[in-house]
Amino acid sequence: MASDAPLLEIDSLFKAFGGVRAIEDVTFSIQPKTITGLIGPNGAGKTTLFNLITGIFPADSGTIRLKGQPVNGKAVHDLVKMGIARTFQNVELFSSMSVLENILVGLHSRTTCGLLGSVLKTPRIRNEERMARQKASELLEFVGLSDHADRKSGNLPFGWQRLLELARALASEPDLILLDEPAAGLNMSETDMLGELIQNIRKQGVTVLLVEHDMALTMRVCDQIIVLDRGRKIAEGPPRVVQSDEAVMAAYLGKPK
């Protein structure tokens, strides 16, 4: 696996808000079809890093490459097309729309029908719509929500909303999926299921980058862990190595005198 070209390369990335340095000289890379965990105390810059990778705001300096292509300065929706998908820390579904429709919106970047197409309803457009609905049903099955396709997504229990958001992100057929605290608010059995789901996502060839506070989950599913503290990368490596790293202990527990 080490011989593969990395899927995501981040090189000396900087980002400051006013005087606060949120990301300082962060460099790492992610191999395809791996699960990487991004951990660190609150305010370490994890969500900022996510927002930089997904193009919500631009970096001050440094480069981000996906499959060798620079992604800096690209619009959010273009990055989705290039193969980056994400979920949000506080689930952001289209709450007035049905479960199925949420997934169909997720397929937006993989379908083409425009204003004119929707009016004319040519055979090609009808076919595309049929394919989209089938793909959406498959995704619902994958996360186990098939029975609730027509329910209003805003009325689902919270755990299911997380699953739906995950399925919606997968709908764009990403190479890389960024999960922002997917286990937050889930109970134990739901978290276990999520862990399995994340493994299954990887099995389908999707690379996962994960921010998570649930250490048991992170250590179990991740191949590689990156530790951030106050905007800097302080450690990197397989879970077992990182767990016993002194800098990491210090960041979480305070420096021993």
């Binding site: 097309k81 949000f88 579904l93 289209f94 919106v105 937006h108 970047s109 919606r168 709908a171």
Partner: peptide, 10 residues
Amino acid sequence: DGEHAAAAVG
């Protein structure tokens, strides 16, 4: 429903 989320799904 959510302009942010809409952009984030493409």
